[in-house]
Every structure is written in C-alpha cells, then in structure tokens.
Design a protein around this nucleic acid. Structure first.
Lengths: 209, 209
DNA sequence: GTACTTTTGCTAACAACGTTAGGAAATATA
DNA sequence: TATATTTCCTAACGTTGTTAGCAAAAGTAC
C-alpha cells in the first residue's frame, strides 16, 4: 500500500480512525453515565461493554485497564476545576478578591461535581454514611471542643462559634493529612511542619479576637 | 436444661462463648495483618479464612459482612486517636498549649497509623501515586499560586512562603469538603459558609503580616 | 447407652468482577 | 481471486463477596 496523499486507502484509514474514536468516546460516555449515577465504585468493564453493545475485550483496545478510564475522568475533573477557577477570578483584579472567589468556586465545584471530586481525591469505599454512626467520633469532637471552649471563655467569646472553630480546626488538619498522603513520601518534612505551625498560630490568634 | 448457677451446662456454654470469641479475635487479627501490610483494599474474606485455617462461611458467623470487619477497625482507629489526644493534652493546662498539642498529635497519628487513618476517612482506591503525574494538577497550583504571590508582593513578603500558603489554602479547602462529604446532606448550609468565610478572612490577613 | 436436638463448620455453588488467549469473521490489499 | 490485516467475539482464568444445604460433632434427655 502506498501512502500517496488523496489516495483511497488514505480515506479508509481515516474513516477507521474516526470510527475508533467514536467507540472510544462511547466508552467514556457509557462509563461516565455509570460513574455519575451509581458512583465510581459501581463502574465496571462489563457494564460498559453492555451499554455500548460491544464485547468486553473491545474496551481493552482503547484503554489499558479500568484505572485508565477513571484516570481520564480525574484529568477531566481537574480541567473542569481549572476552568471554573479561571472564570471565577476573571471579574476581579485585586488578589484578595480573587483568592476569595477561588475559595467559593472550589467549594461549589466540589458539591456541584461530587463524582468528579471523589475521583480526583481518591475518596471512596468504606461506609460513607456509617461514619456518622460511630460513637467514637463524638468523643473525638468532644476532646477537641473542650480546649476551644476554654479558650473562648478566656477571651469572652460566645459559645455559638465554638462548633465553627472546631470545624475549621478539624478540616485544616484532615486537609493537610490527606493531601500529604496522596503525594506520599514527602510527608512530615520541614515544609509541613511550617504549614502546621503557621496554621496553629493563626487559629489560636483567630479565636482570641 | 436447667440454668442453675454452677451447673456443668453453664460451664459448657461459657467455654463455647470463650471459644467463639477466640475465633472472632483471630479473624480480626488475621484481617489486621492483611490491612496493615497490604492496605485495606487487599483484605478479603477468603484470605482471612485461609489465615485462620477455617472455611469461609465461619467468618459470617462472627461478622455480618466484610464491611463490618472494616468498621471494627474504623472504630478502633478513632479510639486510638482519642487516646493519643488525651495523652498529648494531659501535660498541659492552658487551652492554647493543648490545642497545639492536639494538632501535632493528630498529625503524627495519621502518619504513624497510616492504614487506620485511610480507613477512618474512606481514602482509597484510584491512583494514589498517579495523582502526582497529572499535569492538570500543576495548572491548578499555578492558578492558586498566582494571586497568593501578588498578595505577598503587595505586602513585601518574600517568595519562599508562597508555596507554604498555597498548601495551607488547599488543605483547608479540601479538608472542609471531604469532611462535609462524609456527613453528606448537611453541606452548603449556613455553618459551612461561616467557616469558609472565617477561614478566608484569616488566610488573607495572615499573608499580609 | 441410646435417641433426639442443637451447634458447628464444611463443600459447593451463585453472581459478579478484571483481564487475556485464541480464533472466527469481516475487511482491505495485491 | 488469493493473501494479509484488522476487528471483534467466545470462552476461559482467577479473583471477589455471599449463601444454601448438608454432614459431622457435641450436647441433652431418657
């Protein structure tokens, strides 16, 4: 076969590539249908094959494995988040306003695109709803709440904000931990200790207003 | 059969209960061996059965299902965390010092007991190490870093802390989101907006020192 | 000690999963 | 028309969680 430009064979390979990409797109479409309705844990190669009306091995002609499909969505998720942030900051020029806009945009993105977010940060399996039923968790919140309450008493603040401060404290800690666990290996180094120290200082002084 | 105290039959049922609890304990022991060495995703009923030298269905006489075993560890994890926090705060009386001690204790607990922590917060499956290879993530950090840098320029701070502040910002946001996603349903309410606003205010003013 | 009941723990199966080998059928090339 | 290639399926392997049903052992009662 000659690779002459404008040859018929050229059109055939182009059509084939086009068809191949159509199948690939339909795989992603069917996969996302599953992810968005039943969660990413419920996505399976066999269900995708069923949905696109092809046999199972065809999927492996387009993706190396199941994880590669999910990785595609993870990337898509970050692209979507980046776009959202760009749009959110665009109306502002002052960095303070932009940071605030980013925070709100990030927050809304997470809950508007729940399934994307869970994929992006590897959130998943064990009892998502059962966590609330663990009595030990209440003990934990009590333990942290106590010094916060006492700090507020010292500075004459009202009780209503204690739960708020607990939330802030816990969120920050868990955020730091889980982000560090993703990029595993680098944890517990100087930078992290500085971030932690920086946060604690700010947190304490924030209560004593 | 009579339930007279000190009867022989009484001793039999007691021994049976003791033996049953021994099996239950050996299940948990074998399960934890798997979780701690290969991660909680690698734990399987069949591997446990193999390790304790019983057949598979025996496990279901002690636990309703696989999730129940993992839930046991989740509870154990929170108990361990609570004990750690109690010990950490004990040497101090001032709430400020206690809060600081809690933060460090929490941080160290997370990395000393990696598998517990991942279980407790439902962290898991998708490419934990592949996340670092996503190019879109760099775009994201760039987007957030930009206004932070400009804020620091405005206030005459040095560049070295910008990455630190980015880390703080990101951690806080992700922490809030993921903790809210666990207790799903309550999200995006007034309290969360207050926490978010509170954090942003503190974050911005923290940069302008 | 023998007959009956309960407990115990097994084999075997079901349904679903990711992944792959090997070959049949369709298509394109000479 | 014969050959080479691509496409795509059947069928299997080895996992997984979970359960039905039955054999053997242990305890109970006479």
């Amino acid at each position: 076969m000659l690779t002459t430009l404008g040859n018929i064979t050229m059109g055939i390979t182009e059509r084939r590539q086009r068809q191949k990409e159509e199948v690939r797109a339909s795989i992603l479409s069917a996969a996302w249908q599953l992810v968005s309705t039943e969660g990413w844990q419920a996505m399976s190669i066999r269900k995708i094959a069923d949905a696109i009306e092809y046999s199972v091995p065809v999927i492996y002609d387009h993706f190396e494995n199941k994880e590669a499909i999910l990785l595609e969505f993870t990337k898509q998720g970050f692209r979507l988040l980046n776009d959202t942030i760009k749009k959110a900051t665009a109306p502002y020029t002052e960095p303070e306003a932009q940071i605030e806009a980013i925070a709100y945009a990030y927050w809304n993105f997470a809950f508007d695109n729940n399934e994307y977010y869970q994929l992006m940060y590897g959130m998943g399996l064990p009892g998502c709803d059962t966590v609330a039923q663990i009595s030990e968790l209440k003990d934990f919140t009590g333990l942290v709440m106590d010094p916060i309450n006492r700090m507020m008493e010292k500075s004459g603040n009202k009780d209503a904000e204690a739960f708020l401060k607990l939330h802030t404290f816990w969120s920050m800690l868990h955020g730091m931990v889980s982000i560090n666990m993703m990029n595993k290996g680098n944890s517990r180094d100087e930078l992290n200790m500085m971030v932690l120290k920086d946060f604690i200082k700010g947190f304490i002084s924030g209560i004593k207003v």
